[in-house]
Structure formats: structure tokens, C-alpha cells
Design a protein around this nucleic acid. Structure first.
Lengths: 123, 123
DNA sequence: CTAAATGCAAACTATTTGCAACGAT
DNA sequence: ATCGTTGCAAATAGTTTGCATTTAG
């Protein structure tokens, strides 16, 4: 495993999760790791194919990369765009029951206004 | 309402739903409607903002546009990429209960192998 | 010495936008 | 004559890829 690929994985593992390729790139640089965007994307592709990290698609926004591999869902704040985890334990089961056949995966992204933005908003 | 915008809306309404901008463009052309991609996108933006059609985001694929305005979810086949509707009546309620605050929207996209592709697949 | 991994720049996909020309009132 | 709408082409955002070069075993 190359220095760059390893650095990337470590940055993801030591992060709060949910970082974009761009953010990961910058964090690697901050840690004096010599890396280019091409390598970031290339390795993110490999890492998520291997199953070492999880790619999260957010409609209308760049993909994010998550250290948490266990099945879980996400909420994104309409205002600050911050993402948080939620865990709806039996979502998959429920979807399969509804669809009526085995499912291979699902993306669920819930949009709301997070508590802290809601607090600021009250005028 | 311009000829182009109206044609676009009609094509969507007369379709099975779930068409991409590109597909809509081609269907308009087939009907001898003089239209450009810029106008397709421009009007799709307007129509979905007005609430006349619904924009569906599919991770890793172009957006699709739906004539069905009532809340519902989608399944996409891993093989043939065809999209179908499912209706999980109390999904929104359930999500709000889970998140613990009002939600503004959600995107749910379930991936599976559709019955007809499953049939072909058995060797 | 060889194979794997990198950086750069160009390509690509989906979509948006500036602007001049067009068309309907 | 005016204002909304168009088509074109260029711009944008995010991501991927070809290729020559570098790196590690």
C-alpha cells in the first residue's frame, strides 16, 4: 500500500466521516503528504471497491466518504450542509418486504434543518 | 407557455415516467418539436420548481423526471437500469419519528435486480 | 529490472449560464 | 417596441483516464 493510499485511509479513519474528495485532499496535504487529486479519486475508488470505506452519494453535491461500514442512513442539513448518521436498524428488511424481492443496496438521504441551524433561524 | 415548454410537459405526462433529460430531448425531436438541450434543461428546472414535474436524483446517473407528483419511492434495476415506483405510505412519518424533528425531504433509491432480469440471469 | 502507483493534463458527463437573435403581443 | 424565450457555445463541477515518469521491491 502506497504512502498516498495509506494516508488517505488514515485521514478517513481519523475523521468524523462524511468528507468530500476535495476535503480529503486538503487534509492529506496538511499532513505533508504529497498527493494529487487524480490519486485521491483513484484511491477512493479502490478503497470503496475493496470495502475499506463507504462512498456516500448526495444528490446535487459531491460524493462523500465514510469510515463507518455498518449499514446506516444519513441526514443532511439544508442550511449548513453538514451530514450526520442515523441508524434505522430494520430499514433493509423493511424495504425487502416492500419490494418483495432481495435488494442489493439502497441510498437514503434525509434533508432537514439541524438543531443548531434551527436555533439560529428563529428571529 | 412556449411550444417547447409545453411539448416537454406533454412528453413527460404521456411517458411511463422516469426519463432523463437526454431521453426527453429525443422524444421531443421525434415529435418534430424544434428544441435544444439548453431549453430542455432550462424548462425542466422551471417545471420542477413550479411543481409540475418531479426531479428524481439517481446516484451516479443522470437525473430523471417524473410525472407522478404524489410522494413515492423508486427502485432501480442493477442490470437494465430501469426504474419502477414503489409506494411506502408512511415512510415520511417514520423518518420524522426517527430523526426526531421535521424533515424537508428525502431521497430513497433502492437497488435490486428486477424480475425480468432475474429470469434471464438463471443459467 | 519490473510492476505498480503517481502526477499532469486532457477528456468526460451532466448541467448551467451569458448573450445575441428570435418571436409573440 | 418590448419582454420573454430560444439556440448556441462556452463555462462549470465533479470525476475519470491516458500516458510518461517515478517509486518500491
Amino acid at each position: 500500500m502506497s504512502k498516498q493510499k495509506n494516508a488517505l485511509l488514515e485521514v478517513i479513519r481519523n475523521s468524523e466521516g462524511h468528507l468530500t474528495a476535495e476535503e480529503l485532499f486538503m487534509r492529506c496535504r496538511e499532513q505533508q503528504v504529497d498527493i494529487s487529486m487524480a490519486t485521491v479519486y483513484r484511491n477512493l475508488g479502490i478503497l470503496s471497491m475493496e470495502g475499506s470505506v463507504k462512498r456516500i452519494a448526495v444528490p446535487g453535491e459531491p460524493d462523500r466518504y465514510d469510515k463507518t461500514l455498518s449499514p446506516h442512513e444519513h441526514v443532511v442539513c439544508d442550511r449548513c450542509k453538514r451530514m450526520a448518521d442515523i441508524c434505522m436498524s430494520d430499514m433493509r428488511q423493511m424495504l425487502e418486504r416492500w419490494v418483495g424481492s432481495p435488494i442489493s443496496s439502497y441510498d437514503l438521504c434525509v434533508r432537514y434543518v439541524c438543531p443548531s441551524c434551527r436555533a439560529c433561524e428563529r428571529t
